[in-house]
Write a protein that binds this DNA or RNA. Structure first.
Lengths: 121, 121
DNA sequence: TCATGTGTATAGTATACATTATACACAAGC
DNA sequence: GCTTGTGTATAATGTATACTATACACATGA
């Protein structure tokens, strides 16, 4: 049992079961088929017997379950490749920025996001 | 030959050779020993025959060669685990921020960094 | 009761990652 | 001429990642 990823495992199981309550199409089998894996594999993942799947499968799973893929990836101990590419393109700049913001409260970061979005940057 | 990483390969070879010009302690053998790998391994890496090493070794190499480890990691196609941890801790916030800044010019990002550092955030 | 759907156990695999160990040919310095 | 240092060729390995394929026992519904 990959205890490290129990959060991810438990979370997606819970999400899927909740959806299944209203819609039979959210069985392990059907979800597995839609995201393109074997049912046994998804089952093991949901039980925490296997580590979370690849970024691609996590993305499909997120879409399927109506979840935020960045959050699901984070739970799986991963960071989206597209974000990593942005950082790699300008490592010094982004490394500084991220380390700078590391210990800032959420609302401070949110303010930066908003100002960058709306402002005359 | 791992062509994808020729930049990394060529770059560290060049840096090491430059240092070696003034200091015999920068031979493949001695650098390899100081960062804790086999000389043949470092040689292959510098020639682009092998992919870049682990984050840990890249860090040691950066320190050894007086380079920025984030830059070297970027050249190796990696993003520092400590930065990834910051993102994973608050994925929505940081994902938004980074995607927001993706296409901004360097000086705009630098301004954010400075304002966060100096300002009354 | 018989087909269908459910989750899951077991076993195996292909590929990549991160390296080591040994040995060799060449060159320089003493 | 001999030791020492240089880079490098060759071969192999352990571990992790990301899955597949098969088969089974239980439950449900017609």
């Amino acid at each position: 049992m990959y205890t490290i990823h129990m959060n991810f495992a438990a979370y997606i199981r819970d999400r899927r079961e909740t959806l299944r309550h209203h819609d039979r199409r959210y069985s392990v089998r059907q979800v597995a088929q839609r995201i393109g894996v074997q049912p046994a594999y998804l089952s093991k993942i949901e039980r925490g017997d296997f580590a979370p799947p690849s970024e691609e499968k996590i993305r499909l799973l997120a879409a399927e379950l109506g979840e935020d893929s960045d959050v699901l990836l984070a739970m799986a101990g991963k960071v989206s490749q597209d974000l990593q590419a942005v950082i790699r393109a300008r490592p010094r700049l982004f490394a500084d920025l991220i380390r700078q913001l590391k210990d800032m409260p959420d609302d401070a970061i949110l303010r930066v996001v908003r100002e960058v979005r709306d402002g005359d940057w």
